[in-house]
Design a binder for these strands. Sequence first.
DNA 1: TGATAGATTTACATCGTGTCAAGTAGCGAG
DNA 2: CTCGCTACTTGACACGATGTAAATCTATCA
Lengths: 199, 199
Amino acid sequence: MSSSEPVYGDPETRSRILQATWELIEEGGPGVRLVDAADRAGVSRQAVYLHFGDRAGLLLALVQYMPETLGFREQLAYVFDAPTGAEMLERAVKLHSTYTSKIDSVAQVLEAAQYQDEELGAAWRDRMDASRVAHRAIIQRVADEGKLADGWTVDNAGDLFYTVTMNGPWRELTRELGWTPEQYAENLTRMLRRSFLTE
Amino acid sequence: MSSSEPVYGDPETRSRILQATWELIEEGGPGVRLVDAADRAGVSRQAVYLHFGDRAGLLLALVQYMPETLGFREQLAYVFDAPTGAEMLERAVKLHSTYTSKIDSVAQVLEAAQYQDEELGAAWRDRMDASRVAHRAIIQRVADEGKLADGWTVDNAGDLFYTVTMNGPWRELTRELGWTPEQYAENLTRMLRRSFLTE
DNA sequence: TGATAGATTTACATCGTGTCAAGTAGCGAG
DNA sequence: CTCGCTACTTGACACGATGTAAATCTATCA
């Protein structure tokens, strides 16, 4: 699934381009030009095309690169190590908040670009689906413990949990309304516990 | 605040262009070219520039045009007519769900474009702020009735209410996960009642 | 020495936006 | 009836970013 691309060129150069693109998006918003990314990486604009084919390919590679460099898998494993469903939920919200604070700028670009390139859109969908499955699994765990509040199915509660903790609300709360990631985690956890858990 | 623009030309032509743009965005996604909007409206591409200045101006006009043609003010008044805070909350979620189903395609474009044009961004921010104030007012009403659940301030609960009912989650639930607007309203209302209201 | 991979340089086609200038169709007032 | 205004058209063009192509350079390794 991941290595369908031939992967041209020096891996170090490749990483430098990805890193430069990442930084530029964080600093300057969505309007990054390929020439700027190339300049910061210390390569020519054409090198970008040699490595990634086109703009969408570059962003596509970034989708993989970010969680890898941030060790997302390990952090997710910690969430699923929690002793109870309630604890899982709390850890999940915390992870979401801190992780999103690191990748949200790029995520925003990808959300916008997904409709312009089919392959990129599919890759983004994959990530969303994986997230949804993970959130559902947490609710399933809660239900298995008999703690899911009345009125919910695992599907309904899982989908709501997943969507309510998407980037949009996080972005608005932290970027526009001045919440810290900690405040976000605290308040959202409170909301979700009251909504989905008994007692 | 609204009539800073000189408003060139025939209002009917202006409406036709806006309507055409709206339709094209709904049908074909964000990548609408001005020439397509002009064609559908039966005018030349330059007419669009005469009326709206540039692409951002067109979208800016659309921000005003949509709620006007859909009678948003009146529907909002109905929400605030509710006898209790709980009823207000329910009506607000319902309105949000049905209204969003009509404007979300365009909203998506505006969300993306707001970072490319300062004036458009400001206009979009204005709408968001108004929405936030409205949501907060509903929570304030709940609090005035002594029904706000323990652990919340009006600010925290209001901001959460506002952000959680933003377009992102609605879009994901209805467009990708197959929820109907009614299911959205029902489940989100349940979640918010349990989170914010006593009893 | 000579091939090969990685990258550069220069040039160019394309596409959408935005600008400019000249022209035209309709219409009300003198 | 024609002057003059408003609304819009036509055609041309500059600009900027993406993407493509071909020739060149420069290490390194056999």
